[in-house]
Structure formats: C-alpha cells, structure tokens
C-alpha cells in the first residue's frame, strides 16, 4: 500500500520528492501510474499528489508563444477552438489519446514524463520546438523537449525535479500542422506509428518544416533529414517521397503486437508525406477550417 502526500505548493512537492528519491513518485491524472502499479511495473511506496496544485494547469497563447501547464488535461487541449487553429497537430493528437474518460483525467505533463515511446503528445510538441520547463531542488531550468526523453520510461528529470510547463512556438499565420497515426484499433489503442508535421509557407515554398515521430524509436524523435528534404520546395511528390524515405531510414522501430519493424518503417514512409501535405494545405488556407485530418491521412479532395 502506498502512502499519499498532498503538497500545499510546488516547493513542498519538490522537497518531498527530493527527500524520498527512491520511494516517492508524483501522481497527477493517474492513468499511467495506477495502471503500472496495478500490473506490477512500478511499486511506488509514496505518492505525491500534484492534482490539487494551482498555477500549472491550463495553457495560454501570447503572440507566438504557447505555454502549456504540466497539469493541463488532455481533454481541455482537445476541446479548444483556438488551439485547433494554431496548434492543429496537438489537438489532433489529443483527440486520439485513450478515451474521453482517460483524456479528462490524463495530463500533458504526465504523458511526457511517463516516457512511453508511443506517447501521443511529444511529436506534436516537438514540431513546435517545444521546451520543457522544470522546477527542481536547485531552482528552475529548461531543456529542449527533443533532449527530454532518455530511454523508454526515462527522462532527464532527476528525483525532485518536476516538469511544470512546456513552451512552444506557434506561428500565427501561413503555418499549419498535422498529426497522423497508425493503430490496430481506431480507439483506445496506442500508436503503432505516430507522425507530426508542421510547415511554414512563404512565397509559395516551405520556409520552415518540422517532422517528429513516436512509437518507432526508444524515444520520440525529430527527423531533421526529412525536414531538409522539403525545405524550399512546394512539396512536389518527389520531395515528399524523399522526406518519407529519410524518416523511415532515421527511425529504429521494434517488432511487437502493433506491427513489425519493417511494417512500421513502411508506414512512416507513407504517413510523413501525408502529414506534411495536410500541414501545407492548412498553412495555405486550402484545408477546411476546423476539419480534422481523416483517419491515416487518406483524403480524396483538395
């Protein structure tokens, strides 16, 4: 049986976690931690309940800066119309995570800190150059989200460190993004492959591009090679195919119940071009506003 400590402040939570480095774990939504505890994957002796802490819940858009508090519920991302326009990939990733119940409980911070290779939030934050903001015993510091994940289930966080928020750059115009994933089931499933893409379009060409993947490597990853393949182009088929090829080469999937490594690479090579294309259509105003990307990114109309 685990004891539960309910801190009155962030500082109290940090102090308690630092004082009990091997036995205490923070809990927020509980949708990963309590499953792990129940299935024996982790045996926390002390839980530090963050769910009542004030000040790190919710998100705000200030110009091009998006800051998402670690305790922000996935469901509140999913339902926000402004985020749907400005950070479409993030909202699309939120929409496919678990069930309504899970999204109501689960937090953005928990999704990142649990370190699951197939976690839904990281790719869509990585394509917006996200930075993790952390409070620890020694004060506050920041880590690029691309360097936050160390191994499956492991992040850079030391005992006593708490992720408090994530900041990201969300362009206000001529930009678009998209998140696509392959799953065995449409709902209540983890990604077999997850792909986020964002593009910024100037003068009819891509002036900035980001591609990030999940579930195809030990940690979520940015694919710079795929980005370079489309920079300066207007996403002609050969540029898109090259981006897909480079992403498939760069990743290192495993074979498991959700697909073989070979199949996953193939899916990456298909979904990366589709996600880039939809991001482009959104950036150029050619995609119906508020319309989600179709399942697996297959569409018939432009």
């Amino acid at each position: 049986m685990a004891d539960v400590f309910i801190p009155g402040s962030l500082e109290e939570a940090v102090d308690f976690l630092a004082d009990h480095p091997t036995t205490a774990m923070p809990i927020a939504g509980g949708t990963d931690l309590l499953v792990d505890a129940r299935t024996g994957r982790s045996r926390p002796e002390r839980l530090v309940d963050l769910s009542g802490l004030r000040g790190i819940e919710g998100f705000e858009l200030d110009g091009e800066l998006l800051r998402v508090g670690a305790l922000t519920r996935i469901r509140s991302i999913e339902l926000d119309a402004e985020l749907g326009r400005r950070a479409t990939a993030l909202v699309e990733a939120a929409r496919v995570l678990g069930s309504v119940q899970i999204r109501t409980m689960a937090t953005v911070g928990g999704n990142l800190c649990h370190g699951t290779p197939s976690a839904e939030m990281p790719p869509s934050l990585l394509v917006h150059d996200a930075v993790a903001e952390i409070t620890g015993k020694g004060g506050q510091y920041s880590v690029p989200l691309a360097a936050f994940f160390v191994a499956p289930g492991r992040t850079v966080l030391a005992p006593g460190d708490l992720l408090t928020s994530v900041r990201a750059r969300v362009p206000s115009s001529a930009a678009g993004s998209c998140y696509l994933r392959q799953t065995v089931r449409w709902s209540m499933d983890l990604a077999g492959v997850g792909v986020a893409a964002s593009v910024h379009v100037e003068g009819g060409a891509v002036s900035n591009a980001r591609v990030a993947l999940c579930a195809v490597a030990p940690v979520p990853m940015v694919v710079t090679g795929a980005e370079n393949a489309v920079m300066g182009t207007s996403l002609a088929p050969d540029a898109l195919a090259e981006a897909g090829r480079r992403a498939a080469e760069a990743c290192s999937p495993i074979s498991d119940a959700r697909g073989t490594a070979e199949y996953r690479r193939q899916v990456v090579s298909v979904l990366v071009p589709r996600a880039l294309r939809i991001a482009w259509l959104r950036a150029t105003g050619s995609w119906p506003e508020g319309s989600p990307a179709p399942v697996n990114g297959v569409w018939t109309r432009e």
Partner: peptide, 22 residues
Amino acid sequence: TGDCGACTVLVDGKPVVSCLQL
C-alpha cells in the same frame, strides 16, 4: 486498468474512470 469504462462516474460533471482515481 481504465480500458473498459464499467467504473465510469462523473466528477464535477466530467466522466472519469473511478478505478484510476484515488
């Protein structure tokens, strides 16, 4: 484990799986 939804209740009007909430 939060998969089946049989334990769904509303907390402050929102649906949660009560097996994964303390």
